[in-house]
């Protein structure tokens, strides 16, 4: 059985834990603590180490789903978990201030994974705030990375089918990159 490791990243409150819970076939391992930073995200708890879930696709591919804390002060967890991932599923909540700049900042923070792996963007909470649109995000990504096509979707992290579409897109991109990667030189 093939295995992939993908990372769910994005700002606090973008829906990473919810997305992994929507997708996972196993009971999700969560590390949530009472949230004292209500100014950043008005929610009861926040992830302080990782979330972990698993899903099997088409009976032949297992995907290990790792979620990282959203806050920058936990960026040591970003480095630890990004090292083992091949794909990045970046969730951006549309109601965040300067959400496009925030998206680009997170891509910069995960540039090493972005450079060697695949990336898919999920825009959440677009029902809370309508703009920017998917086209706005795509335009910003094309301007920043003109040589790349980074898929952008609107998504509800509570909706398993929508999350599955994102995940399948990411897994297909990961597999495509692996197929296109140059073969190692023979010694």
């Amino acid at each position: 059985m093939a295995e992939h490791v993908v990372l769910f990243a994005g700002p606090m409150g973008s829906g990473k834990t919810t997305a992994i819970r929507s997708l996972s076939e196993i009971e999700v391992v969560s590390t949530e603590a009472a949230n004292t930073d209500r100014a950043t995200a008005d929610k009861e708890t926040t992830t302080v180490a990782l979330d972990y879930g698993e899903i099997t696709i088409d009976d032949v591919t297992k995907v290990r789903l790792y979620g990282v804390p959203g806050q920058k002060r936990f960026d040591f967890m970003w480095s630890i978990l990004a090292g083992r991932a091949r794909g990045l599923l970046l969730l951006i909540n549309n109601d965040a201030p300067e959400s496009i700049a925030l998206l680009l900042q997170y891509l910069a923070d995960f540039h090493e994974l972005h450079a060697r792996g695949a990336v898919v963007i999920g825009v959440t909470k677009s029902d809370v705030r309508e703009s920017p649109t998917v086209a706005d995000y795509s335009a910003a990504l094309t301007a920043k990375f003109p040589e790349q096509l980074i898929p952008v979707f609107t998504v509800d992290p509570r909706n398993a089918e929508e999350m599955r579409t994102l995940l399948l897109t990411l897994v297909a991109s990961v597999e495509m990159r692996e197929l296109l990667a140059p073969a190692p030189e023979k010694i």
Partner: peptide
């Protein structure tokens, strides 16, 4: 705090208290 904010620290001349708090929380 459980979510990694430093309340107080002691002897912080050579240790980044904020970083230590975040890692301890994790």
């Amino acid at each position: 705090t459980d979510d990694g904010f430093e309340i107080v620290h002691l002897n912080g001349a050579t240790t980044d208290g904020g970083r230590f708090a975040s890692m301890s929380s994790s």
